[in-house]
Design a protein around this nucleic acid. Structure first.
Lengths: 102, 102
DNA sequence: AGTCATTGCGCAATGG
DNA sequence: CCCATTGCGCAATGAC
């Protein structure tokens, strides 16, 4: 079963093995590096995500403030701009506290 | 040079090899699966990111609309509710009704 | 001392 | 034909 000297045993064979071994090492290095990169990508994306969520929170807050201002104004219009000559309403300050709970 | 019976060649040795090979396979499967999971995590995070950015865009738009409304209102106030004492005014009757096409 | 887990390495098959 | 990628086994080492 053992080819005595080998049609293909110890000549260019060895050479090819060597080369392949190198290729294998290289390939595996790359593969590993890629895994590392991917993991890092995850971290970056996570951070980005947090940034975005913070921004959303901020914008939402701003929005709700502005909306509240609008509502307040509308109420003022409805309550104040009605000075009917003859009716003593006397509603000095319409208590208005409607906060949006998100 | 060949230990005929081998102090440790074909007995529990084979058994141990077998076991180890199994363990190796298992470990590598896991490792590979983890890589896949990580990659998927990246995709999920990317999607999430896009969603968040869309939301930010929307909120920003809303905000700018509201802000514009405020500015407009402020201008109206400055122009109408300021009858400067001494200068012949312009519009005695506050022109109401901004945009109503019905 | 014993077991499984993880890792670097080489071989061979296979895919470009 | 050459390199790249992948499954597999071996052996050393790690961790418990």
């Amino acid at each position: 079963m053992k080819k005595p000297s080998g049609e293909k045993d110890s000549d260019e064979y060895r050479q090819r093995r060597e080369r392949n071994n190198l290729a294998v090492k290289k390939s595996r290095m790359r593969s590993k590096q890629k895994a590392v990169d991917t993991q890092q990508r995850v971290n970056e994306l996570k951070e980005e995500n947090e940034r975005l969520e913070a921004k959303i929170k901020l914008l939402s807050k701003e929005l709700s403030v502005l909306k509240d201002l609008f509502l307040e104004h509308a109420h003022n219009l409805a309550d104040n701009v009605q000075p009917p000559a003859g009716t003593e309403g006397s509603s000095p300050a319409p208590n208005n506290t409607s906060t949006n709970g998100q």
